[in-house]
Write a protein that binds this DNA or RNA. Structure first.
Lengths: 323, 323
DNA sequence: ACCCTGTCAGAAATCGATTTCACCGTCAAG
DNA sequence: CTTGACGGTGAAATCGATTTCTGACAGGGT
C-alpha cells in the first residue's frame, strides 16, 4: 500500500500538500495536477485507519440487530443502508443472535473503532448502552426501545397493532382467541400481548391460558401452537406477535389440518410468501424499511452535532385484513 | 476515551508496560495487577484504530454480497460469522445490490481499513479483484467464482444441480420444460441453464424460446413466467434457477390458476415457506450456511499465512423431489 | 517606500498502541 | 570474581494521515 509520503515524493511536494489536494484545501493547480498524477500512477488510496486515528472518528455506522436471518431486520438494514450510503457512510452489520454478551462486544468494537454512531435493535430488554452514552457516541434505538435509557428511538405502536389484529379476529366471529408473543423481557412482545388483551377483554374476560410467551423464532412459534391446540378447550383463533413464529404456528396448523379459514390467524409482521398461497390471514404490516431510514436520518442528525433532548418516533403500521 | 497513557500514569508504569499486560508479555505480577486495576477504574478499552495502524492489520473480515434481502445470502452470512467469530474475528457485511461500483467501493474500503481478508459473492460476472490481489489481501470467492482470476473459491455444482432438477421434471412426465435463469453474465446463471439444457436435450431437441434470462429477483421471475405463459405453445413445466425468481414465478402461476401440480416446477435454492403450503415442487437444496463456513475456514487459513496455489471447493447440493 | 492582507506550501506535532533498543539487576556457570 | 543469560522495564521510534504553525511571496492601499 503506497502512502501519502510516497505520493509526495513522486510529485515533488510535501505530504501536507498531498493531503490538501485530497481534502479540497487551497493548492495551486500545477501541484494539484502533479499530485493527482502521482497518486494515480501509484494506485494510492489514503489509509482510513490513519485518517480515523487522527480525526478520532470514521464514516462508519454500526447496525446491531438480533437476527440477521429475519427478513424484518434485513429490510430494516436496507433502509439504514440506503440513507447512510447516500450521506457517505458505510454500514457494518452486527448480528447478536439475541445474546447480550455478543451485543456488548459489538458495542465495544463500535467505540474502540471510533465509529460515527450506532443503531441498535436491542437483544432482550435491558441492553447496556451506558458505555456508548458515557462516551457520547450517538445512538438510536430501533424497533425495541431499551429499558430506562434516554436515547432516540424509532418504534411502532405495538399495542395498537396487537389490538387491531385481535380486533379483526373478533369481528370475524372467533370466540377463543389465543396469543403467541415473544420473550416476556422484550417490550415489543409484552406490548403486543397487551394489545391482544385489550381487544379480547372487550368481548369476554381474558383467559391467560391462551397467552404463550415464546422466543420470536420459528420453532418457538410451532411449540406454542402445539401446546395451545392440546388444551382441553383449544382456541379457535390465534394472534401471533411476529413473522417467524407465525411460520412455525402455521406449520403446526397445517400438520393438523387446521389452516385458516378453519382457524383464525392474525400476524404482527409481514409474510413475504403470502401472495403465493391463498391462506386468509390478517396481517399487521411492519414498515421495516421505513424504520431503518428514519433511524438512520435521526442518527445522522446526532452525528452532525444535534443535541436536543432524546426523541421517540412512533411509526404507523397498517392492517391488511384477510385476503 | 481513556488512553494507554492515562492508564500508565494511574498505575505508575510506562505505556509499554500497559501494552504488555494486555498482550500477555512478561510483566511482574504486582505491576500487572496495578495496571489491571487502573484500567478497570478508567473503563479503558484499547483503541482498535491505533492498534490496526500500528500492526497494519485488524481482526475484521469483509463479507461482500449482492443482496442482503435474499435468505440464501443471509444464511451464508451466518455460516461465515459462526466460524469467524469463533476465531476471534468480526465480520462486516457489505451489500452491493448487484452493482459493480458499489462493490469496488467496498473492496477499496476493505483495503484501506486494513481488514484481514475478504469473502466475496461477486456482483455480475467480472468483478475487479485486481486491487486486492496486487496488495496480497486474502480473498475467497463464494457461490460465484469470478471470471479469470485465480483465487480460492467455494461453489456448488450448478450444472449438475440444474440437470438433476430438470431431469426430475422429465421423469414426472412433462413435455415442454422451460428455464428461467439469471443474468447471462453471471456464471451461476449460465451453468444452471446448461444443466437444464443437458437434461432437456436428452429427451428432445432444446428449444431456446423456453429459455429466459432474468435478474435473480422476484419481479424478474414473475415477468419471465408471464412471457413464457404467453407463448403460442406455453411450457407445461419450468426450472427456475434461484429462490427469489421462483417466488415471482409461482405468484404468476397462482394468478393464472396454474400452480403445481398443474404446472411442473423445480427450483434451484431453498424456499423456507415450502413446508407450510402443500405445493409439490422439486427443490435443489443449497448448502448456504455450509458455503459460508467453508469459505470462512479457507480465508482464515490464508490469513494465517497459507500460500499454496488457489483451490476450488465444490459442495454437493441435494435434491428434494416433489413432496 | 511601507504595511497589510491573503495565498500557498513545508516542517513538525498529533492521534494511541506496539515494539525495538537499551539498561539494570539477579543469578548461574566457569 | 568475572562473564553471560535472562527477566523486567522505560524511552523513543513507528504506523499514515491531518492540521497547526510558520514563513515566503505577491498584490493593493496609503
Amino acid at each position: 500500500m503506497p502512502t501519502i509520503y510516497e505520493v509526495a515524493a513522486a510529485a515533488g511536494v510535501s505530504p501536507a500538500t498531498v493531503s490538501r489536494v485530497f481534502n479540497g484545501a487551497n493548492v495551486s493547480p500545477e501541484k494539484a495536477e502533479a499530485v493527482r498524477k502521482a497518486a494515480k500512477a501509484l494506485a494510492f488510496t489514503p489509509s482510513r485507519t490513519a485518517r480515523t486515528l487522527r480525526l478520532q472518528s470514521s464514516e462508519v455506522i454500526a447496525l446491531v440487530i438480533p437476527d440477521i436471518e429475519n427478513p424484518f431486520f434485513t429490510a430494516l438494514a436496507r433502509g439504514v443502508e440506503d440513507v447512510a450510503r447516500a450521506a457517505g457512510y458505510s454500514v457494518v452489520l452486527c448480528n447478536t443472535d439475541e445474546d447480550h454478551d455478543t451485543e456488548l462486544r459489538y458495542l465495544d468494537v463500535a467505540l474502540s473503532a471510533n465509529m460515527a454512531g450506532v443503531i441498535i435493535a436491542a437483544a432482550g430488554g435491558n441492553s447496556d448502552l451506558s458505555g456508548l452514552i458515557a462516551r457520547k457516541c450517538p445512538v438510536v434505538a430501533v424497533d425495541r426501545s431499551p429499558h430506562g435509557v434516554d436515547v432516540d428511538a424509532v418504534i411502532v405502536d405495538n399495542r395498537a397493532g396487537g389490538r387491531a389484529a385481535t380486533q379483526a379476529l373478533v369481528e370475524q366471529g372467533f370466540q377463543r382467541i389465543a396469543c403467541i408473543t415473544g420473550p416476556s423481557d422484550v417490550e415489543t412482545a409484552t406490548q403486543r400481548a397487551d394489545g391482544w388483551r385489550d381487544a379480547v377483554t372487550a368481548a369476554r374476560p381474558t383467559d391467560d391460558r391462551y397467552l404463550r410467551y415464546a422466543d420470536f423464532r420459528v420453532e418457538g412459534g410451532a411449540a406454542a401452537m402445539s401446546e395451545l391446540l392440546a388444551l382441553p378447550e383449544p382456541p379457535d383463533a390465534v394472534f401471533v406477535a411476529n413473522n417467524l413464529m407465525s411460520v412455525g404456528a402455521l406449520r403446526v396448523l397445517s400438520e393438523q389440518g387446521k389452516l385458516p379459514p378453519a382457524t383464525g390467524v392474525a400476524v404482527f409482521g409481514d409474510l413475504p410468501f403470502l401472495p403465493l398461497v391463498p391462506i386468509p390471514i390478517t396481517v399487521v404490516h411492519m414498515p421495516a424499511r421505513h424504520l431503518g431510514t428514519t433511524a438512520a436520518k435521526l442518527l445522522l442528525e446526532r452525528i452532525t452535532g444535534d443535541d436536543q433532548p432524546a426523541r421517540t418516533i412512533v411509526l404507523r403500521n397498517q392492517l391488511t385484513p384477510v385476503g
